[in-house]
Simulated scan of single mutants.
Amino acid sequence: MKPTMMTYINEEADYLMNMLNNYPTSIPDIKGKEWLILATGSSINAAYSAKYYIEHLTDVKIDIEEPFKFQYYEKLRSTTDIIIGISQSGESTSTIEAIKALNSQKLGIETFALTGNDTSEITQVVNHVVDIEVKEERVGYVTKGFSLTTLKLMLIGLKTAINQGLITDEEEKQELAEFRKAVSKIPAIIEKTNQFFEKWQDNFVKASRFTALGCGSVIGTALEMQTKFCETVRVPSQGMDIEVFMHGPYLEVNRNHQLFFIETNSPVNDRLTRLLDYESQYVDNLYTITLNSSSDERTLGLDLEFIDEYKAPLFTIVPFQVLAHHIAKKLGRNLPQRIYTDFGIAMQSKTKPGNYA
């Protein structure tokens, strides 16, 4: 049988656990204190998902940029000392070209590529190749690769914190133990999401817009929800920080919109709760995804109370991955049937066509 999105979502726990078991030998030593990450699509969303975890643990400042815009319109900070390009396929043209342009300046800055293809084009333009430990996803809508990229970056941050002497060996062990405990719960999260979909599927298929709202560390989750829903559900979808939402986009909401609130163990959760309470006056279908347990029927509780807000993006994305597949299928989207297959080559966004099942 051909693989589906769910094939790869169901593999996530095993692959993530394998990455944790390979730590620290599979994690590179990245020095420097100002990192520039270049990425597009789900790769840039993964970078945002890991950014705050890395910065929380280390003495590193991370800038994240779209490579095309960076190459033609941005300036490289004089203090940047590490450049990281992320491309799961290794074939993202804009990321490759931006790194080439930086190389031509002979800046002497170390460059890294995080990729799932160690023979791809991006590996030819960097000093170091970092394997994100994912086999090829042959459905066109990456899920497992997104999660593995996020964890790889987080573990780079953890190892950097040890190398910088900012955490103890015991604190490192505690971080790894929490990751392992939470990863072991991913199959249960998938099943909870299946049940959540069954309960609310009739509402989901009537949505005229989906919006995911979070704050702080889960901005990567909200952005990846937007990417996945646009790719698969193909109903207008957006993901943003609540502060962005409260300065304009709140004016567009109506009864037919569906809002997801992403709740973490954050000191600013009260703002999220107040926003949900307000929007409940004007939107019929609001849902919450929380790290905690919940008996509320519109809340999907992940039972991860022990996970802090910085690790949260690795786990809060899983329900959106599952829902994207299920809602798309319910709407009759034939995801195995590829559309616009010539787009990547026509627009030169990829170096070659994808190897899809």
Rank of each mutant, 00 (worst) to 15 (best):
A161Y: 12
R138L: 12
P353F: 08
S184H: 14
I189F: 06
L275H: 02
Y53S: 06
V233F: 04
A113Y: 05
N355D: 14
Y8L: 00
V322N: 03
H56W: 10
F343P: 01
Q281W: 10
S280W: 04
G165V: 06
G216Q: 00
M154A: 09
G165N: 12
I339E: 14
S293T: 15
R338E: 13
K330S: 13
I86V: 15
D202I: 05
K228T: 06
L291R: 10
T93L: 02
L57V: 08
P28Q: 11
L323T: 04
T111D: 05
K350L: 08
S266M: 00
F245G: 03
Q71I: 01
N203C: 04
M5Q: 01
S184V: 09
M225V: 04
V183N: 09
E133R: 15
A182D: 06
L302F: 11
L158P: 02
Q281M: 09
Y141T: 03
D296H: 13
G145Q: 03
V244K: 02
E65R: 12
L114Y: 15
W35P: 00
A324C: 02
N256L: 03
P313A: 11
N117Y: 13
S237T: 09
K329S: 14
T288K: 15
D270N: 12
V183P: 02
G220Q: 06
K69S: 10
T316S: 11
A47N: 07
R298P: 00
I190M: 06
I84L: 13
N194T: 05
E55A: 08
L335F: 12
Q164T: 05
S217I: 00
I122H: 12
F306P: 00
L176S: 08
L286I: 14
L314Q: 07
L158G: 12
C230P: 01
N194Q: 13
